[in-house]
Simulated assay, not measured.
Amino acid sequence: MGLLGVVAILAAPSIGRVVNRYSPRRNIQISWCLALLAYLIFWFCGRNLYSLMLRIIVLDLSTQFSQVTNQAIIQSLSRKANSRNNSIFMFSYFFGGSLGTLTGINAWSMYHWTGVTAAAVVLLLLALLNYYWQGVPATLGE
């Protein structure tokens, strides 16, 4: 299953070109939709091994899309503070990942895959609310 992550690694150059071509807002929307699609695949396809493999690929692509887009946004903020901005971003990224893992573990212990999927959808909805509340720059360097 871990080898399925290679798909997102191989897609990184293409994702980078898309990030350079479209607005950060559009790229974050694409990332969010891919993540939602991954969990909908699981929700409707159940425990089928092939749906799990497809979900891993789609979720990795979503993560890669958001990571490249967010890195581009961070790097465009200030040339003088790139290192500091990136440190704050990476800390927040891993801290959020840790909270997501904790949430997933607790959801699994209580409700198994249904709980994990429901928790993921709730977190995606919170991300969507934050997207509209905080906003995303229309162009890099804003």
Score class of each variant (00 low, 15 high):
Met90Gly: 02
Ser92Trp: 01
Gln71Tyr: 02
Arg55Tyr: 12
Asn70Ile: 05
Gln64Asp: 06
Val68Glu: 03
Ser98Tyr: 13
Leu61Asn: 07
Phe65Lys: 00
Lys80Ile: 04
Ser98Lys: 07
Tyr50Ile: 13
Ile56Thr: 12
Asn48Arg: 07
Val58Arg: 02
Val58Ile: 12
Ser62Val: 01
Ile88Phe: 11
Gln64Ala: 13
Ser87Gly: 12
Ser87Phe: 04
Gln64Gly: 00
Asp60Lys: 01
Thr101Arg: 13
Met90Thr: 09
Thr103Gln: 05
Lys80Glu: 14
Thr101Tyr: 06
Leu52His: 03
Phe44Gln: 14
Ala72Glu: 00
Gly100Lys: 13
Met53Arg: 00
Ser98Val: 05
Ser78Pro: 10
Leu99Arg: 08
Gly97Asp: 10
Lys80Val: 09
Phe91Val: 11
Phe44Ser: 09
Ser98Gln: 06
Ala81Ile: 05
Tyr93Lys: 12
Gly96Lys: 11
Ile74Asp: 08
Ser87Pro: 06
Val58Asn: 02
Leu102Arg: 07
Arg55Ala: 14
Ser83Met: 13
Phe94Pro: 00
Ala72Val: 00
Ala81Lys: 14
Gly100Pro: 08
Ser51Cys: 15
Leu59Val: 03
Leu77Asp: 07
Arg79Trp: 07
Thr63Ile: 12
Ile88Leu: 12
Met90Ala: 10
Gln64Val: 05
Ser83Tyr: 05
Ser98His: 03
Ser62Asp: 01
Gly46Ile: 14
Cys45Tyr: 10
Ser78Phe: 05
Gly97Ser: 11
Phe95His: 08
Ser78Trp: 05
Gln75Asn: 13
Leu61Pro: 04
Asn70Cys: 14
Ser78Leu: 01
Leu99Ser: 10
